[in-house]
Design a protein around this nucleic acid. Structure first.
Length: 644
RNA sequence: GCCGCUUUAGCUCAGGGGUAGAGCAACCGAUUCGUAAUCGGUAGGUCGUAGGUUCAAUUCCCACAAGCGGCACCA
């Protein structure tokens, strides 16, 4: 006889097994109406689930966050029914809820287009209106397979065939329509409400496998009410305005063009930001005991063969053939083998370890055309790369130091938080299991010491070793790996790096591959989006515009600009024959952090009126004070710390 | 690479089988003005590239390229 404990601690006993719906009804009609599903001992289940034993339950209503996932999953089912009703012959596959919405993958010769959305969405609303209860049923495995095969649903049949034998095969129906589904679902299609919208179509491989057929995927978004949906759509619009490709064009930072697909043409202002970031990184690395090097772009394939890259990544490498020479050179896709070559010059001593070798290394990779994305994913990029040659014992302390450096640098660039993923051994890999055990163990231990919380990313390590990935998110909600730390026992072996130990014998060093920004291109892309183009003063490509109100003040404006320039500030003048309002608007839209306005009064008094981006209030200072103030403010964060 | 969509002036976009249009920007002129658009004028395009259909293609068809959205990939 089940005794049911509610969230407030109260208990209710029943003489016989009851459904969640019955429990809710026994508590009150309000709850009976509001409850969509329940958490039974922590697991979300249908309200129709029969409770036979003592349990803790929490009812889920529209107000709960958990309701979102159910609304989205239910929406996917409704989408599938709508599509099969409107487009007979379309096969269903899978349709999960995802962040912000849901999708459903369909198999159909003719892929869907957004032109189909109006009809599909209308049909979906009809199904929601119909308010059909979701009814769960279970079936015998073979019967289920036969059922779907008879309907011509070969993808569903395949899914069932691949389910573990122990798994119950459950179905959910809504009206006449039925789908294989683990559940749970809400009570009926009406519980979905109206706050959903179809968003986009896309191709997607069956089971995420590029050797399998391409399905037609429809994405939708769904929320608890119209207000949430509207807020989400507004957020997407705002995100679009921050897109680095758009801001890059608006602020004239860079461009991309067909003649050099996947390579960035940096314009003066974009390059200024790049150089500021690079100079900052160089100071941080030098202060942390790194030595900077520079290695060749073109390297003989023999080196890539020795390192193992030729075998695994040849199709992704740009090759340079010179007619007169019987040699194949490749543009380096990474810097590590070259760094090993520097390490191998001369006999190394254990006293030199850890050796931290840094390079702003320009690399080229022939990325698949579909992977290119603005300046975030390109074919030519520069890594803030470094390799730390160390002993196995030093992995932990080097990792701890690295994480501290990365954390400090991300904060200086305005990123307060980031995600860390731990990627362990992939299926295709070099090195023995024993070596992998040690490498993964050392990295895990280092994370524990450094206090790094990570999520496990199984099987996603590099072929030569496990890695930590430091992930930042762009304006559109896409995650990008920026920083990385990879433990490598393999490459030193392959390229025969060694040092003389305390014992006088030769030993293999361990290599830690590490980057903080990852690639400058990607990082600057994310930085543009992070600030929506409104860079802090130290990073802004144009820090100050001096704008005279009348042409009588032009001479003084030039003088003011010269004074700022002498203090190392990036300043321009705007002597255009335009009203001050127009100048303010123009430079505000260009996200210039400070506009120094000078009119007759200022010229007379030798002052400037400073107007900060987006702030109407102005402060009038003497020219000398203004220069001192802004010069101090524009100091990069690391130098500021040194000064203070 | 795969599926779909897109490509027209520097930018944002409209148009459409009879060789193109707007706004902003640019240039010229007037205006000298106190904190997010002063007014007027001028100029600007092989309609992504290459084929095909047609009396005629920027428009229709095919191929390719690049971009966009996903998927796959990401040393």
């Amino acid at each position: 006889m089940p005794a049911i404990t509610l969230p407030d601690g109260s208990q209710r006993s029943f003489d016989a097994p009851v459904t969640g719906a019955e429990v809710a009804a026994s508590i009150g009609p309000g709850l009976a109406k509001a409850a969509l599903a329940m958490k039974l001992d922590g697991k979300i289940v249908d309200l129709s689930t029969v409770i036979a034993e003592d349990a803790k339950i929490i009812f889920i209503t529209r107000r709960d966050e958990d309701a979102l996932e159910m609304i989205r999953h239910d929406c996917a089912h409704v989408l599938a029914e709508a599509v099969q009703t409107l487009f007979p012959g379309t096969q269903v596959t899978i349709g999960p809820s995802i962040e912000n919405g849901f999708y459903y993958d369909f198999a159909r010769n003719e892929p869907f287009t957004t032109a189909d959305f109006a009809a599909i969405e209308a049909k979906m609303r009809e199904i929601v209106q119909r308010n059909s209860p979701f009814i769960r049923s279970e079936q015998d495995r073979d019967a289920a397979i036969a059922f779907f095969e008879a309907k011509g649903e070969r993808f569903k049949a395949e899914l069932i065939r691949d389910l573990p034998g122990t798994e119950t095969i459950s179905f959910y129906s809504q009206g006449e329509w039925l789908d294989l589904c683990r559940g749970p679902h809400m009570r009926s299609t009406g519980d979905i409400g109206g706050a959903f919208k179809l968003m986009k179509v896309a191709g997607a491989y069956w089971r995420g496998d590029h050797t399998k057929p391409m399905l037609s995927r429809i994405y939708g978004t769904a929320w608890r009410d119209q207000k949430e949906l509207d807020a989400y759509l507004r957020m997407l619009e705002e995100a679009e305005k921050r897109d680095h490709r758009r801001i890059g064009k608006e602020m004239n930072l860079f461009h991309l063009q067909e003649e050099a697909t996947g390579s960035v043409f940096w314009h003066p202002k974009g390059w200024k930001i790049y150089r500021t970031a690079e100079a900052y990184m160089r100071r941080r690395l030098e202060a942390t005991g790194y030595q900077e090097v520079k290695t060749p772009q073109l390297v003989d394939r023999a080196l890539w063969e020795a390192s193992g890259h030729w075998e695994k990544y040849r199709e992704n490498m740009f090759q340079a053939i010179v007619e007169d020479e019987d040699k194949t050179l490749a543009l380096k896709p990474m810097n590590c083998p070259c760094h090993v070559l520097i390490f191998r010059q001369g006999l190394r001593s254990y006293r030199e370890l850890p050796m931290r070798m840094a390079e702003f290394g320009a690399c080229h990779r022939y990325e698949p055309s579909g992977a290119l994305h603005g300046i975030m994913r390109v074919r030519a990029f520069t890594q803030d790369d470094a390799h730390i040659f160390c002993t196995e014992d030093q992995i932990a302390s080097e990792t701890v130091q690295f994480v501290a450096l990365l954390d400090s640098i991300y904060k200086d660039f305005g990123f307060e938080s980031f995600r860390v993923k731990f990627s362990d051994r992939p299926e295709k890999r070099a090195g023995s299991d024993d070596v992998w055990d040690r490498a993964e163990g050392a990295l895990k231990e280092a994370c524990a010491i450094a206090g790094v919380d990570y999520e496990l990313n199984p099987g996603e390590g590099a072929f030569y070793g496990p890695k930590l990935e430091f992930v930042l998110r762009d304006a559109i909600g896409r995650d990008w790996q920026c920083g990385t730390l990879q433990v490598d026992f393999v490459l030193p072996e392959r390229l025969d790096a060694e040092y003389v130990g305390e014992d006088g014998a030769r030993h293999r060093p361990v290599m830690l591959h590490r980057a903080i920004l990852g690639s400058f291109e990607r990082f600057l892309g994310i930085l543009i989006e992070q600030y929506a183009g409104r860079f802090p003063l130290w990073l802004a490509p144009v820090q100050i515009v001096v704008a005279p109100i009348v042409s009588d003040a032009d001479g003084y404006a030039e003088e003011v600009a010269a004074a700022f320039k002498a203090a190392g500030l990036a300043v321009t003048t705007d002597l255009a024959n335009a009203k001050i309002q127009a100048k303010i608007r123009e430079h505000s839209m260009q996200h210039v952090p400070v506009i120094a306005v000078v009119g007759r009064k200022e010229a007379e008094a030798r002052t400037v009126a400073l107007r900060r981006l987006g702030v109407e209030a102005q402060e009038t200072l003497s020219l000398d004070d203004a220069v001192a103030l802004l010069a101090a403010e524009a100091m990069p964060p690391d130098l500021k710390r040194l000064r203070d």
